[in-house]
Design a protein around this nucleic acid. Structure first.
Lengths: 132, 132
DNA sequence: ATCAATAACAGTAATGATTACTAATTTCAT
DNA sequence: ATGAAATTAGTAATCATTACTGTTATTGAT
């Protein structure tokens, strides 16, 4: 049988992953998390990183970002905010802008299904890549 | 040497792929395009489908959609419009809503890089999945 | 503190989408 | 028609992610 939600147990590995993510503002990928957390715990496995990132995202402690570059990014900042992704170097930057209020209502107006949320991201060239 | 843009030559396969895509409003994936175009040309290869979809997207004849489900979708409708993706069945539906004007200016206001565009998509449950 | 139940782990294999490679074919300007 | 270059079919390789398996860690109850 497969339905029952497992009881959550503590794990050093999960704590490390969450702690690392909180120190970063650049929205690292699973692999970047792996390479960094490994410096504290060289035995941690990539699967553990993926599993915990997914778990943390599922329980809402972190955010999973799909920014169209084919790789998932993760963000410990779960407040609603927007992201920019550089088409050249791939870096992800937080945007300081007000929330797009009413966008869901706008979309829902002439739509028969149910809208849970939206994802908006911006792309272009970052400052560093322009100055080069 | 690798820089020079190749001269574009005609190809039956590319025509077929574009023609097929224009008959569909459901934003198929590369694999779906492959399976369908194969019925007209059983020898066509998946690599050819991918290469041409990428090429057509690069020259702006079709649109590549990254809707966060890990698979690229393609759309022959290149006019700016928004999409909804069902979290349950994965179907992609066009949304009838006005364009989010000024969103780029809004994002660019306090940003130092250069913004080329944005991607917005909505997710939730489609009508068919609700009625079930 | 010990103990069993079970969640989580490390390590590795498997998957799935996409891209890269190569020899053969097609396109097209001459 | 012809030859250079783009395109193809077929296949192998890559990359991110997930699944599997036997072992270890956590937890609540004794």
């Amino acid at each position: 049988m497969k339905g029952g939600a497992d009881i959550l147990k503590h794990s050093k590995q999960r704590d490390m992953i969450k702690a690392f993510l909180m120190t970063r503002k650049d929205h690292p990928t699973a692999d970047t998390v792996y390479m960094n957390v490994r410096q504290l715990n060289p035995n941690i496995s990539l699967g553990t990183v993926y599993r915990n990132l997914t778990l943390l995202a599922d329980i809402g402690e972190i955010q999973r970002l799909r920014l169209g570059d084919g790789v998932d990014h993760f963000d410990a900042d779960i407040s609603p905010h927007y992201h920019f992704i550089c088409s050249k170097c791939g870096s992800v930057i937080d945007l300081e802008m007000e929330e797009l209020t009413g966008i869901i209502d706008n979309a829902a107006a002439r739509f028969k299904g149910h809208i849970d949320g939206h994802m908006t991201y911006f792309y272009g060239t970052c400052v560093d890549c322009i100055e080069e």
